[in-house]
Design a protein around this nucleic acid. Structure first.
Length: 164
DNA sequence: CAACAGATTCTCT
DNA sequence: GAGAATCTGTTGT
């Protein structure tokens, strides 16, 4: 178990996202293995940072290797890792994770995993504790278009671990 | 102050 | 696979 250095996140979201697969995030004392991610950059019409900095997305423009958490649909939280040079407004959305001893159905989907891990808005802007346990992903990462959004949905910026 | 957005989830078919 | 539900925080006037 080796902690990932902050430099890990100091690169473009499209580079960090696939590397994030099978890494471990420590959230509220629990380890979650990342199995699906999605990259968002400032030039992406679907990104919160597209229209510039606002009160809500401030963390996205903050230092990388920190969490950006927002509330969506008035009820679901989404967890993002801020990446890229500070101030650029890049992030990687964590879409699915696996936790030992927890039914995968509870941790597949951005809203679900936040509920399971107890991630809420107060987590916004905190340092992201990420680890690498050296275990390789079970298969080649699969690159697919994004889902659940209306703008630029066909951009191939979603990565997930293919089940063995 | 009011309109609005929304990167979801669930429940059907 | 498609459509409805659903509710705050955010944003701009």
């Amino acid at each position: 178990m080796q902690p990932l250095p902050p430099t890990f996140a100091e690169r473009d979201a499209t580079v960090v996202a696939p590397e994030l697969l099978n890494k471990l995030a420590l959230v509220h004392g629990r380890l979650a293995r990342i199995t699906e991610v999605e990259a968002y950059t400032a030039d992406d019409p679907a990104s919160h940072s597209f229209k510039g900095r606002t009160g809500r997305n401030a963390a996205m423009f903050g230092p990388p290797m920190h969490w950006y958490v927002y509330l969506i649909y008035g009820m679901h939280h989404c967890l993002n890792l801020v990446t890229g040079p500070e101030g650029e407004g890049q992030a990687v959305l964590i879409r699915s994770v696996l936790i030992d001893g927890v039914d995968p159905a509870r941790t597949v989907g951005p809203g679900r995993l936040c509920r399971e891990l107890g991630v809420h808005r107060s987590f916004d802007g905190s340092f992201a504790e990420l680890f690498d346990d050296g275990i390789a992903p079970p298969g080649e990462p699969e690159i697919t278009p994004r889902i659940g959004i209306t703008k630029a949905a066909d951009w191939p910026r979603r990565w997930r671990v293919v089940r063995p």
